[in-house]
């Protein structure tokens, strides 16, 4: 299982999304999961495609083609606004 986390406005758009997905080890990527989400959650997928949105795996920023493994925590991060 891969845990999905959505922060900021992405969390509101992902209210209906199942927060854990089953994937074949090393075959799934953040990009593939975004494309999979687009089949049922178009408005979320549109926001996720914004160039400023970053992805992290296990709390480390990664590229969209990073291979994912069982137990990974995948987070979608909109532009930050702290301070």
């Amino acid at each position: 299982m891969i845990d999905l986390l959505f922060f900021g406005r992405l969390g509101d758009l992902a209210a209906e999304v199942d927060r854990s997905v089953t994937c074949v080890d090393g075959r799934a990527t953040p990009l593939a999961i975004r494309e999979w989400l687009a089949t049922e959650h178009q408005s979320l997928a549109k926001e996720l495609s914004e160039p400023q949105v970053l992805v992290s795996v296990n709390k480390m920023i990664v590229k969209w083609d990073q291979p994912l493994f069982d137990g990974d925590e995948l987070a979608f991060l909109p532009p930050v606004t702290g301070g």
Binding site: F7, R9, V80
Partner: peptide
């Protein structure tokens, strides 16, 4: 530290005003 905190730390602000909620843009 402040310049980097504002652009890199994973924090997000949501404003509530006049009963409406809105996530702030960077």
């Amino acid at each position: 530290l402040m310049d980097y905190l504002k652009t890199q730390a994973t924090l997000w602000k949501k404003v509530t005003a006049k009963g409406k909620e809105q996530w702030l843009d960077a």
